[in-house]
Design a protein around this nucleic acid. Sequence first.
DNA 1: TACCAATAGTTAGTGTGACAAATATATAAA
DNA 2: TTTATATATTTGTCACACTAACTATTGGTA
Lengths: 149, 149
Amino acid sequence: MTQEQYSKYSFLLDRTARKVKQYAQQQFKSGDFDVTVDQWLVLKNLSENDLLSQTELANLVFKDHPTLTRIIDLLCKKGYVERVPHPQDRRSFQLHLTETGVSKVSSLRPEILQIREKAWENLSPHDFEEFKRILNTIYQNLNGESLGQ
Amino acid sequence: MTQEQYSKYSFLLDRTARKVKQYAQQQFKSGDFDVTVDQWLVLKNLSENDLLSQTELANLVFKDHPTLTRIIDLLCKKGYVERVPHPQDRRSFQLHLTETGVSKVSSLRPEILQIREKAWENLSPHDFEEFKRILNTIYQNLNGESLGQ
DNA sequence: TACCAATAGTTAGTGTGACAAATATATAAA
DNA sequence: TTTATATATTTGTCACACTAACTATTGGTA
């Protein structure tokens, strides 16, 4: 296999990742979910781990701090999340899902699982495992120092 | 396999696609390439197909028209691309690499192939074929009407 | 105590992505 | 020929990614 051929993965990877996000976003919109795909990722992680700091959450969802700041801003504005001052450290916040946030997550979760399945038509469970393995290997190959999981 | 497990691919896919772009962009920067990753994709396609219209190019690189307009704007500002009025159709342009653009492409091409290879350490040619197959299947599953290649 | 490096978070700037709407021109239909 | 429709590109808006620079606070150490 030549170098030339190897270089195409980056194009296909980018194209497919965008399509997956775009497809989900369209479904989110037609279902009036009132959140974006990335906002959902944040909400979902907050529902599974209460009282995270922004830094802890950023490490969970693999987003950088400025991006997370803005997503949290939007989620606060929508009333799904609150920034609670950290009792010991005045630099940081504990992130907390509001009542509205909790019920938003539980009402959207099943619908979103459904949407996510569509991508796997014509593919096997073995394909799924291989896909995850390859994605993780690529990630680690490029992740220099931190070798993050 | 439960629905829950299936939903993780979208996170891994997005994370890996971002890492691939970020890694390449860092290398581009440390090598003073003077283009972004997406600008490179456009330049490369123009070097292989001269005198495309913006619509034709948009279909090649799978970017939407407004995005492409802005990338072309930047490449024109940098002097790598020219918009030549279409001789028959006054609505459209033929895109043309300048001298500078041509030499930029040929000087960067080998360096970029090198950068792209890094992702494939610890992976086999068979992995590569499976990866492409799965990416393309997912893309087509979500691509509703147009069934684009 | 006073200094200093590290940490938490924000702000600003640039580039990109998706979508809707606007403009200009071309082409087909009445 | 006039009208309607389709096409090529641009503009505007919002969201996200990444970098760099900045503020505030913490904790260690001289």
